[in-house]
Design a binder for these strands. Structure first.
Lengths: 130, 130
DNA sequence: CCTTGACCTTCCAGTGGCTGGAACCCCCAT
DNA sequence: ATGGGGGTTCCAGCCACTGGAAGGTCAAGG
């Protein structure tokens, strides 16, 4: 399979696949013409990566998960640990965004949004604390 | 005021303040020794920026908001528009993260997390579709 | 006067995870 | 021979900083 084929099959852009090769996540062979030649196992890996990335795992997490994916002697506890850590980070992010959202929503609601310059949003941003 | 003073007062790292100067968000004067010399108005701007950034506004949004902050003839509708757009982006992000969270939490729960290799998380990631 | 140490300066490089573009090669159909 | 749709490499850029090196400045203490 050429890069275009695996791109279509995995849903990843060809550019991303080249990048993944560059950082050592996949190592396709090369044909006589210099083209990358992907095996089924490469496609599986790329699909795995696409899915893991879609769940927000970092590239380094993906590297770890991929190693576990390939390792018949993995312990599910290792996988679970990575996933739980990631889950905690997601929760942090959500909490942070919800904090912003709450403040912002309050300000937006308080702003008349008309032709006058008075604006609670600007006023709040001008305040040091909170 | 030197950069250290405004850094303490605004809560922004000195590095960040230099960066903000570089991209034209603040333009402190310079003393005879080459040191940046910040006026009160500069400090106000930096505080404003710190607050806006903490609410997740992009640098470009901050540039716009800062211009409105400085403009006595602004219309609050302009400010509100920027804030509402940002709010919508935050909501998108929260929704996306909650989607990830839901999937991930389900998988984590299903994983026994013991010494055996069988793992629903890895299995799910290995699946092409959702 | 000299040293120390805290402060300031600039410049360069790196982060994460791609993405766009230029310039070029390869292969097949017309 | 030509055109189009693959493929290749390499370089630059995105965002918003952050770290570090190498050096200049200033005030206090010995």
């Amino acid at each position: 399979m050429n890069i275009g084929d695996v791109a279509r099959a995995s849903g990843l852009p060809a550019k991303t696949i080249r990048y993944y090769e560059e950082i050592g996540l996949v190592t396709p062979r090369r044909g006589a013409n210099g083209y990358r030649s992907f095996r089924d196992s490469d496609l599986h890996k790329l699909t795995f990566l696409g899915r893991a990335r879609a769940l927000g795992f970092s590239i380094e997490d993906c590297r770890t998960l991929l190693a576990l994916y390939e390792d018949d002697h993995r312990e599910s506890a290792q996988v679970k640990q990575v996933a739980e850590d990631h889950l905690a980070r997601i929760d942090d992010k959500i909490a942070q965004l919800q904090g912003m959202r709450a403040t912002l929503a309050r300000l937006v609601e308080a702003c008349s949004g008309d032709h006058r310059p008075d604006c609670p949003i600007i006023e709040d941003l001008g305040q040091p604390g909170r």
